[in-house]
């Protein structure tokens, strides 16, 4: 097991009280696994991604543990996290387009970052060039300023920088969201290639684009309102989802060949609950057509078949 997250609770502190963005998240990530993390806006997927590498000043670790390669990840202690960052856990941020210092040449910035992390830039210089070529970039980009690169190029540069030290876990947060469809495909393919070549051991791919994640991920985990609702191999989630929320989410995706004549796509009526004061029991019960009396208790996340986890009283 590479990563084991157990009952993780991370709240945002606001003036009106704690926002329960992650309220008991439990999952495992195997070696070499690419896990797609899906869910609608505000379900806690970005918070989960950030929690694994760096809590920002408003986030507070309330409970739960994280283990990476058998070692504890002290996410509440910012200083103790520093040795793990970049070396063991790395991040491709949501804002990869603006993640590079605009007034430094890219190569110089990388050198300064490496030196600050105790790595001799000369030791990885060849590897850096090789990987840039692998994602289809001329190593000459290192002599350029970020403004001279297109959005897709910057995205790929950040991808190479983030994975340069062969981290155990890579968190890719909405990396394809700002790209056009053809570039999305190329980026997704290079991510898989990076895993195959062992540049990263395992990966959490945060996205709201289920069809993209279906093509590249091994497993998909679906979150709803700070809870994990279902985790299963990608094919299972798309073809035989068990949790009502996942079923409705997949049902809202268009399929190739269907037209509006054959029927309008149905969305999920209603909106997710506010997480400032979340409802008790199953958080989906107000929007769920199958809800019954037992749903006022929180359903546990149980393994309904090998590798397929779901949190619903109807599936247990």
């Amino acid at each position: 097991m590479t990563l084991r997250v157990n009952d993780l609770k991370v709240y945002y502190q606001t003036l009106r009280g704690d926002v329960h963005a992650l309220d008991g998240v439990t999952f495992d990530l195997a070696d070499g696994e690419i896990m797609g993390l899906a869910g609608e806006s505000g379900c806690g997927k970005t918070t989960l991604g950030k929690s694994l590498i760096r809590l920002d000043s408003r986030m507070r670790h309330v409970g739960g543990t994280i283990e990476l390669d058998g070692k504890d990840v002290p996410i509440a202690d910012d200083n103790a996290m520093v040795p793990l960052r970049y070396h063991e856990i790395s991040l491709i941020p949501q804002y990869a387009m603006s993640a590079l210092n605009p007034t430094r040449k890219i190569g110089r910035m990388v050198d300064e970052l490496l030196r600050a992390r105790g790595v001799r830039p000369a030791d990885v210089a060849d590897e850096l060039r090789r990987r840039l070529e692998l994602v289809g970039l001329d190593p000459d980009v290192l002599n350029r300023f970020p403004i001279e690169l297109s959005g897709g190029m910057k995205q790929r540069v950040v991808m190479v920088i983030s994975t340069l030290l062969d981290p155990s876990l890579l968190i890719a947060d909405e990396v394809t969201s700002a790209l056009d469809v053809s570039t999305q495909r190329a980026v997704a393919e290079s991510m898989v290639e990076f895993r195959d070549r062992g540049y990263v051991k395992s990966m959490i791919f945060v996205t709201h684009d289920i069809s993209l994640v279906y093509q590249m991920a091994d497993t998909i985990m679906v979150m709803y309102a700070g809870h994990v609702v279902e985790k299963a191999p990608a094919g299972t989630v798309i073809n035989e989802p068990r949790h009502p929320y996942t079923q409705m989410l997949i049902g809202a995706l268009p399929e190739v060949g269907t037209t509006t004549v054959q029927g309008r796509l149905e969305g999920i009526p209603g909106t997710p609950p506010g997480l400032l004061d979340p409802p008790t029991g199953c958080r989906f019960k107000d929007r769920c057509p199958m809800a019954f009396s037992k749903c006022s208790e929180q359903p546990p996340l149980v393994e309904i078949e090998p590798g397929h986890w779901a949190a619903c009283w109807k599936t247990g």
């Binding site: 960052r85 991040l91 941020p93 804002y95 210092n101 992390r117």
Partner: peptide, 9 residues
């Protein structure tokens, strides 16, 4: 860019 650098330690 500052956030990114911080995330990378």
């Amino acid at each position: 860019y500052a956030n990114y650098l911080q995330a990378l330690g």
